[in-house]
Design a protein around this nucleic acid. Structure first.
Length: 346
DNA sequence: AATACGGGGAG
DNA sequence: CTCCCAGTATT
């Protein structure tokens, strides 16, 4: 049987029951696709439920504040997705009267929508013949056709896009695109793929050549930097603390944190004393301070390992921008911070 | 063409 | 530990 029909048959028998597969509404499809970028279905699912529940329509999302959107996104990572999601919602409401763009070409213009997402929305919501190429597709195609071109090289990206475009079922691009992705996620998995029960095993080049485990080929190796973070957890006599928005570009932009001092290495209590924390706290009188965690809390991200100390600083009276400790959880914050807030007994 | 951008799951 | 995940934007 033909490649595409084999996949579609497999899909009809094995597909998961997922909420975004029950709708053709482009808003819901778009939302699911943004959430699922670099994110496994299992992790993204509860966020999709939360967003559709809190923002049933694009108008609800557009009307919300960015802080509300980021709070709901908290814990999912890659927060530019949430900021772009909000920007695009406002754009579609204000410029297009809430009507979603319905072609690959126009979808591609939206912030946070690249080649994959434009293909996914146009095909799934509008039945446009646009082939998706995500991590699953790279894996399935590289194995089935035995392609060793690195999937993250410029030529590889073009080669796989072209191949996927030639393979797509032009009569049902929505079903085909989801079929090949689901096949990659459940059957042709990265580790221990189910080749024994694979409907494509007879014609799979990598299986014949015993090169399943070496495909797809990737050329990258991300280098990880180490950073040392000191968070100043202030508590004043009226149970207020300082919580600040990270406004600069980069990691965790527009999320909230305790005042941060980054150092070249992990600090001892004595070395911490030498820091100019009075300046950070705008000359507030410091009554006492202590280190919360004896050993550094190591927060590991894709590109950074953060060695973190939380310093508990008891002060007389904080400046008026201080917020109530009870209000801390209303603000969106990185997992590193929100986990501390949950564990620390204020 | 490289790099930055999170956090969690699987082996 | 390493690799991967329904990738995109920026440099």
């Amino acid at each position: 049987m033909d490649f595409k029909y084999t996949l579609i048959n497999w899909y009809s028998a094995h597909k998961r029951d997922l909420p975004w597969r029950k709708t053709k509404n482009p808003y819901n499809i778009w939302l699911s696709e943004i959430i699922l970028q670099q994110t496994q279905v299992k992790q993204g699912l509860p966020y999709y439920e939360a967003f559709t529940s809190n923002f049933p329509t694009i108008f609800d999302l557009a009307t919300a504040s960015e802080t509300e959107v980021l709070k709901l996104w908290q814990g999912l990572g890659y927060y530019s997705r949430a900021r772009n999601l909000h920007t695009t919602a406002k754009h579609i409401v204000n410029e297009f009267n809430g009507v979603f763009p319905n072609t690959y070409k126009d979808l591609l213009k939206l912030k946070g929508v690249g080649d994959y997402t434009a293909s996914a929305i146009s095909s799934i919501a509008f039945n446009e013949v646009a082939a998706v190429v995500d991590g699953n597709v790279y894996r399935v195609l590289s194995r089935y056709f035995g392609i060793k071109t690195p999937i993250n090289s410029t030529v590889g990206i073009k080669e796989f896009k072209k191949l996927a475009s030639n393979l797509i079922d032009t009569k049902q691009p929505d079903i085909y695109n989801q079929a090949i992705m689901e096949f990659g996620a459940l059957q042709c998995k990265p580790k221990n793929p189910n080749c024994h029960s694979c409907p494509l095993c007879k014609s799979c080049v990598a299986l014949q050549k015993k090169s399943i485990d070496s495909l797809p080929v990737k050329v990258k190796k991300t280098k990880v930097s180490t950073k040392y973070f000191n968070f100043l957890v202030c508590i004043d006599s009226s149970n207020k603390t300082l919580f600040q928005k990270r406004t600069h570009k980069g990691i965790w932009q527009n999320l909230y944190q305790f005042p941060l001092i980054e150092t070249e290495k992990s600090l001892s209590l004595e070395e911490f004393q030498l820091l100019d924390i009075k300046n950070v706290l705008s000359n507030t009188y410091i009554k006492d301070y202590a280190l919360y965690n004896e050993t550094d809390i190591v927060h590991k991200l894709s590109h950074q390992h953060l060695y973190t100390k939380f310093w508990i600083i008891e002060v007389d009276r904080l400046s008026k921008e201080a917020i109530s400790i009870d209000a801390l959880t209303k603000y969106p914050s990185p997992v590193l911070i929100s986990t501390f807030i949950e564990n620390f007994k204020f």
